[in-house]
Amino acid sequence: MKTIVLVRHGKSSWDYEVSDKDRPLKERGINDAHLVAERFKNENCVIDFAYSSPANRALHTSMIFMRNLGFSLNDFQVNEALYDFSGQSVQSFVESLDNKLNTVMIFGHNYAYTSLANSWGDQYIENVPTSGLVQIKFDVAEWSGISKGATEQVIFPKHLKQ
């Protein structure tokens, strides 16, 4: 069994004249990431390793999750392949993961994450929103063999706000 946890970065700010990779999170993005991370923590899912896009907004979101989950940064890496919007690079990255890892969390971007959630999962998702989390389980022994899995969990900020 292999499980992927896709997390789209939190809401970013367009208030600064910086490159796309350097765009920071808005306050709402920070708050939503904390909200989703806290809810995910209650699921007691054991993550073997976590990876993030190098973009500031994805990296900041990943750090919020890592802190909330009490996750060791020894099991965390930034990877350029996750700075992808189509999903092709992310898919290749996931398919080449070390098979010793069973559950991996990755932080990145749309359109890639909505596309992958729909092609890998068995539940249609119109759009993975900012700070949205989608967990998909595959009945395979190797990452290279993933295709269609079961969408086990979807946590979106709007579902947690009252």
Rank of each mutant, 00 (worst) to 15 (best):
A112V: 11
F107H: 12
N102P: 01
E38T: 14
A117I: 02
R39Y: 00
N44Q: 13
L97Q: 10
P24I: 11
V78L: 07
R57C: 05
M66G: 05
D32L: 04
H34C: 06
N110R: 11
G29H: 08
V128K: 09
H9G: 12
M63E: 12
T3Y: 00
Y113M: 14
A50N: 09
D98W: 01
H60C: 01
S115I: 13
V128Q: 07
L101G: 01
R28A: 10
L59E: 04
M105W: 09
C45N: 14
Y111L: 13
F107G: 06
A112R: 06
G121S: 03
N127P: 02
V128A: 05
V5H: 13
I30R: 15
N127R: 13
R23P: 09
V5N: 03
L133T: 05
F76V: 01
N44V: 11
M105T: 00
P24Q: 05
S72H: 03
R57L: 12
D22K: 06
A112W: 05
R57A: 12
K100M: 11
S92D: 12
S72T: 08
S52P: 07
N118Y: 05
S89E: 08
N99H: 07
G121R: 08
S53A: 13
Q88A: 15
M63A: 01
N42E: 14
F40A: 02
G10Q: 03
H109I: 12
Y124N: 09
